[in-house]
């Protein structure tokens, strides 16, 4: 700072100096420090889930489909004198005698992986189409918008059930069907926010300069609509994750022997009637992740849009 005062005042110098003082990681850290405790809780929970999902193969004590002992051994939670807890299995065993903890850890990888892939695909389809029709409005805009209106009039879970009964329940079909159904909502949002950006002068300038469709989309529009889309990604992830879990729970989603939280609830559901909490572990894992993502999205929306509620 002292060198600048020696040479006299320069606005560009001051702006440059302030910008140079903080690196990007420092800026992110400053933002994080201001985050409310709920957002911190959410971020920590998400990191733990990601860690478990990535290192599932190393962290899990047994193999994903390894049958180890008798079925339905009690967890540390439910054990009593009649059903002593086996220290080899912290959370007991499932209906085939596989270790519950191992299945839970592998479930993190499978369930979250499939949900992230589906959400990414739905953003790829919905986001691209939504931005494209705002740059080139007209016949295709009308066609796609009306088609989306009709698809959104059918409840998602019901439509997904119907399509799965026709195409069969494989993981690929599941990802494609849910991604296409969910892309309708992404399309609506990205079209709405891109509408406001596409009328800007700099987009007009880029068009006059003769830039291509893809270039305008990538360089001019997408960077300006990122914040709402990132928040929407979190929300859509929750929705997709819950839909896939519900379908797996109903027995038409991810098929055994793949470890998946929704189907694990279904497979061990009978234990509830004996007063055991085992089926609640996978169900709770789903609930906790959804709550955590919601907390982070809430904070992010608040931060980027300056939204203030009446508090």
């Amino acid at each position: 700072m002292s060198t600048e005062t020696d040479q006299g005042y320069s606005a560009a110098g001051e702006v440059g100096a302030v910008r140079a003082r903080r690196t990007m990681s420092e800026n992110i850290w400053r933002g994080l420090k201001k985050a409310p405790p709920t957002a911190w809780f959410g971020m920590i929970v998400i990191s733990i889930y990601l860690f478990l999902a990535i290192f599932a193969g190393i962290l899990a004590p047994y193999g994903e489909e390894e049958v180890l002992d008798a079925a339905y051994l009690p967890s540390w939670f439910d054990a009593d004198e009649d059903f002593p807890w086996d220290p080899r299995f912290l959370l007991g065993t499932d209906q085939l005698g596989r270790d519950m903890l191992t299945r839970l850890i592998y479930g993190a990888r499978n369930t979250i992986g499939i949900a992230v892939a589906t959400t990414a695909l739905s953003f790829g389809i919905g986001g691209t189409l939504g931005v494209l029709v705002t740059i080139r409005p007209g016949f295709f805009d009308q066609l796609i918008s009306r088609f989306v209106d009709v698809l959104m009039a059918i409840p998602g879970l019901i439509f997904a059930l119907m399509l799965l009964s026709i195409f069969g329940s494989t993981v690929t079909n599941l990802i494609i069907i849910i991604a296409v159904l969910d892309a309708t909502r992404v399309f609506r949002l990205s079209r709405a926010v891109a509408m406001n950006v596409v009328v800007m002068d700099y987009v007009e300038a880029a068009k006059l300069r003769g830039e291509g469709l893809m270039w305008i989309m990538r360089k001019e529009i997408i960077p300006n609509i990122m914040p709402p889309l990132v928040a929407e990604f979190g929300l859509r992830f929750c929705f997709v994750f819950l839909t896939i879990s519900a379908l797996s729970f109903l027995g038409v989603g991810i098929q055994p022997p793949t470890a998946d939280w929704g189907s694990m609830v279904r497979e061990n559901a009978t234990l509830i009637t004996y007063g055991s909490a085992t089926p609640l572990f996978p169900a709770g894992a789903i609930a906790l992740l959804t709550v955590a993502v919601n907390f982070v999205v809430d904070w992010f929306l608040h931060k980027t849009s300056g939204l203030r509620d009446e508090h």
């Binding site: 519900a246 729970f249 919601n294």
Partner: peptide, 10 residues
């Protein structure tokens, strides 16, 4: 709001 129906149900 964020809980799956089957979690609440069980």
């Amino acid at each position: 709001i964020s809980f799956p129906e089957f979690f609440v149900a069980y």
